[in-house]
């Protein structure tokens, strides 16, 4: 088990290194940050000083090696734009994205799995058809469009919910959370709904397919022959049997939403990391991009590790194999 974890951490290091190199090269190819940072009518002297100050006068490989050297002391560099350490910058944005992601992914799972199981259990019922229609909708309609429709309906026409921003927050563990205030929830609701629709559709499909297949299995037949009720069978047998793909998708969706809730955060002006990365791309703020994408890679590897560990908890057959 320990060897497994170490292997995963080494893997994480390699992936993060590759990502950082790719981003360095990519940004270099896209354009010169100095053109964005400095007013076009600055003098040649100011321009050269700025280039030197940011270390952009060095060849790319030298810049990269300097970056790696600083990295060893835990320094990811400073943002060109905000002029503050990128780690602090990212850390200040993460809680907003984290709570948005938690609400969206958890909500989609807690609602999508039972509804999907029902749709798989009674595939010909009217409710199942309604559920499946909604899920097709969730899959096929683009996020930005749904976001705009949500804003138009609930914020503009009905005026029930705010159209954007984070609203009031409260402190917990030294971090600001919207989840702790009623006003924060009001602000959270629309972006979370917007984000969750696709995930809801996915969870419905997964749970439905798994349930349909499992209901035909001898395990279910045997449980029925023992007189167990249909509810017991669904809750105790089927849910456990279909949980592995659900946990996998939960992990992946959680990761990708944390990292790339860009569209939703932009539409709802939600001050999370997704908005930060899109801003840093348009301003060629390389240190932010590099650090952020490295963090994302690390984050995904941690999530995959947790998902793998949960497999062992969910399926005892995998436990013994790993122990040997």
């Amino acid at each position: 088990m320990l060897g497994f974890m170490i292997q995963r951490l080494l893997q994480a290091l390699v992936v993060m290194l590759v990502i950082s190199a790719l981003v360095f090269i990519g940004v270099y190819a896209v354009g010169n940050p100095i053109d964005v940072l400095i007013s076009p009518d600055a003098t040649q002297q100011i321009r050269e000083e700025a280039i030197r100050a940011y270390g952009l006068d060095q060849p790319l490989w030298k810049q990269y090696l300097d970056f790696l050297a600083r990295l060893l002391s835990g320094d990811f560099g400073r943002s060109f734009i905000y002029n503050m350490p990128v780690l602090d910058l990212i850390a200040s944005r993460i809680p907003a994205t984290l709570e948005l992601t938690l609400v969206a992914v958890l909500g989609a799972t807690l609602l999508g799995v039972p509804l999907g199981m029902y749709a798989g259990y009674r595939p010909d019922s009217l409710l199942a058809k309604v559920i499946m229609t909604v899920s097709i909708f969730g899959f096929s309609v683009p996020t930005f469009w749904i976001g705009l429709v949500l804003i138009f309906t609930f914020a503009v026409q009905l005026g029930w919910l705010p159209a954007g921003n984070r609203g009031e927050t409260a402190m917990l563990f030294g971090v600001e959370w919207s989840l702790l205030t009623a006003n924060g929830w009001k602000h959270l609701l629309l972006p979370a709904l917007n984000l969750s629709l696709f995930k809801f559709a996915m969870m419905v499909r997964l749970a439905r397919a798994g349930t349909r297949e499992t209901m035909l299995s001898d395990t279910v037949r045997f449980a029925r022959a023992a007189g167990e009720s249909e509810f017991t069978i669904l809750r105790r047998h089927v849910l456990r049997l279909i949980s592995i793909p659900i946990v996998t998708v939960f992990g992946l969706e959680f990761g990708s939403t944390m990292a790339f809730a860009v569209v939703t955060e932009t539409i709802f002006s939600w001050p999370g990391v997704g908005k930060l990365i899109i801003d840093s791309i348009s301003s060629l703020d390389r240190p932010v991009m590099v650090a952020y994408l490295m963090l994302v890679a690390f984050f995904f590897i941690v999530i995959n590790l947790l998902v793998d560990l949960s497999y062992a908890a969910l399926d005892p057959r995998l436990r013994t194999r790993r122990a040997t």
Partner: peptide, 25 residues
């Protein structure tokens, strides 16, 4: 019928590795 199953009439199937739930004790 459910009350009869298991208590009055029960059933054993061909393949025990398919009938027992692999993830429950």
């Amino acid at each position: 019928l459910r009350k009869i199953r298991g208590r009055e009439i029960s059933m054993v199937f061909q393949d025990p590795s398919a009938t027992l739930n692999p993830v429950l004790t």
